[in-house]
Write a protein that binds this DNA or RNA. Structure first.
Length: 230
DNA sequence: ACATAAGCACATTACGAAAC
DNA sequence: GTTTCGTAATGTGCTTATGT
């Protein structure tokens, strides 16, 4: 029964990856942001452009083979749907932390209950952080039309500003299957985020990349241009 | 017009194990 | 016993969407 689910998952993942293989490998921050802006994609002002750019690419390349967006539970909406609900994510490989933050815990639990599992399509790449002079950040700031209200507040608070990524070199796209077993195993939920105004955030599921193994049912490798796992 | 809560993805700290 | 180190736990920076 469970094996059947994995086979089904793998089949869908393979189908999605056929189209996903065509996306660009070299993501230049400035180009990516301009591309989103010119396409009137609403998220081009976001700091974490790698996340939104991957989502942007998925919508562009996958809109014919899957439903975008996916089902909604409470206030949480999945990015896409094909057989099961899917979420698109990006992650930098060359950092110390390999935890990836997934969706709202309750929404995931409900989705698993309804469809048996949910999937994460994870773009993994090496990123450049060489923005010590903050020229990239300033470029983005200017394009956005100056500091946001939040940023002015942040400066007033004396808090630090996060380092921007300048480019990403896509290495791999993983398809991760999340069911109840994974939830129990990864177990580490995250609660008590602080929101922009200081209010608490809802609990989310946290996955540790290093502990994932059989959950990664299928992946595309951009280095060797072949798949290592079926 | 404003507050609230969601989206994106870390960054920093705290703490126990391991090494000296 | 103390320092060092790896990982789990906890808290942050930023923007958009939605509802009043």
């Amino acid at each position: 029964m469970k094996e059947m689910d994995k086979i089904k998952f793998s089949r869908i993942a393979k189908e999605i990856s056929n189209d996903l293989k065509k996306i660009p490998k070299e993501w230049d921050g400035r180009e990516a942001i301009l591309e989103m802006k010119n396409s009137e994609y609403n998220q081009w002002k976001q700091m974490e452009w790698i996340g939104f750019y991957f989502q942007f690419l998925c919508e562009k390349y996958l809109n014919k083979i899957m439903e975008i967006p996916g089902p909604k539970y409470g206030n949480t909406e999945f990015d896409g749907f094909k057989g099961i609900p899917w979420d698109f994510k990006s992650h930098a490989i060359n950092t110390s932390s390999h935890q990836i933050i997934v969706n709202d815990s309750e929404a995931i639990a409900k989705a698993i209950n309804e469809f048996g599992a949910v999937g994460v399509i994870l773009a993994l790449g090496e990123v450049e952080y060489n923005d010590d002079e903050r020229t990239f950040q300033m470029w983005h700031e200017e394009l956005k039309g100056g500091l946001s209200k939040y940023s002015e507040e942040r400066i007033r608070r004396g808090a630090w500003s996060r380092l921007r990524k300048v480019e990403l070199n896509l290495k791999q796209i993983s398809f991760i299957r999340i069911d109840d077993d994974v939830l129990v195993k990864s177990g580490s939920f995250q609660r008590n985020f602080r929101n922009a105004d200081g209010s608490p955030r809802r609990e989310k599921v946290l996955l540790n990349l290093e502990k994932l193994d059989e959950e990664i049912v299928y992946f595309v490798d951009f280095n060797q241009k072949r798949k290592l796992k079926e």
